[in-house]
Amino acid sequence: MSTYKLVVVSAGTSDPSSTRLLADRVAQRVDALAGARGHSVALRVLDLRELAGEITTALVSQLTGPKLAAAVAALGEADGIVVSTPVYKAGASGLLTSFFQVLDNDLLIAKPVVLAATAGTARHALVVDDQLRGLFAYMRTTTVPTSLFASTEDWNDPALPKRIDRAAFELVLLMESGFAQRIRDESWNAYQHEFGSAGGTEVGIDLDSDMMRLATGGSAT
C-alpha cells in the first residue's frame, strides 16, 4: 500500500559493528512487519563514520559538506528513523550526538524514531532512556516506547529479538498512522522555524507578521 522511507543512522565504527548490526536487525524487522501489512520499505543507511570529517567541520564552521548534505536530505524525507550508537564513557558516542547537534532543530519534527545502543556491559543499559531520549525530545521526534540496548551477553539472549520486534512494530504503526506527515501538513507553522531551516526546505516568508510590519514602517508592538 505505502512505501516507507526508513533511514538507519549508525554511529558504530568497526566493521562489522555490533551497533550497526543492532540497527540492521531493527530495519529487517521493520521491513518484514511492514511487508506483512502490505507495505514496502525503502532503506537508506547512514554510517556516521563516513561523515565524521564533515560533521566536525559543520560543528566548527558554517560549512556543510556534500555527504552531510545528502544525509540531511535523506532524514528530511524519512518516514521512520532507526538510531543506533555505541556507549562510550557512560554516554552515547560523541559522533552521534555531534551529528544530531548540527541538524536544524525542525528537521525531524514528529518523525518516529527507534533508539538503540550497544555496550560492553549491562551497566550502561539506561543510556538510551536517560540520555538519548532527551536529545530526541529536543528535536521533537516521536520516539517509540521500547528502547533497545544490547550488551555483550544480550546477543545470545532470546529476549533481545523480542524487544527488537516490539520496537519495530511500534515504528511501523507510527509510520502507518501518518502522524508525522499530518503534523507537517496541518500544524507545521505552530513550530519555530528559521529562514532556510529544516535542511534548507523552510524558505517560505510570512509577510503578515509583526516583524514584517515593523520592517515596512510600522511600529514595534
Binding site: 558554517q62 529562514f195 520592517a215
Partner: peptide, 25 residues
C-alpha cells in the same frame, strides 16, 4: 545574510541590499 525582514525593509524603502559573501556558503 539570513534575515528576510531586513531584505524586506531594504526593498520597502528602495535602499540597497548587501550580502557580505564571506565565510558562509
Amino acid at each position: 545574510i539570513r534575515t528576510p525582514e531586513i531584505a524586506e525593509q531594504a526593498a520597502f524603502y528602495g535602499n540597497g541590499y548587501f550580502a557580505n559573501n564571506i565565510f558562509w556558503p
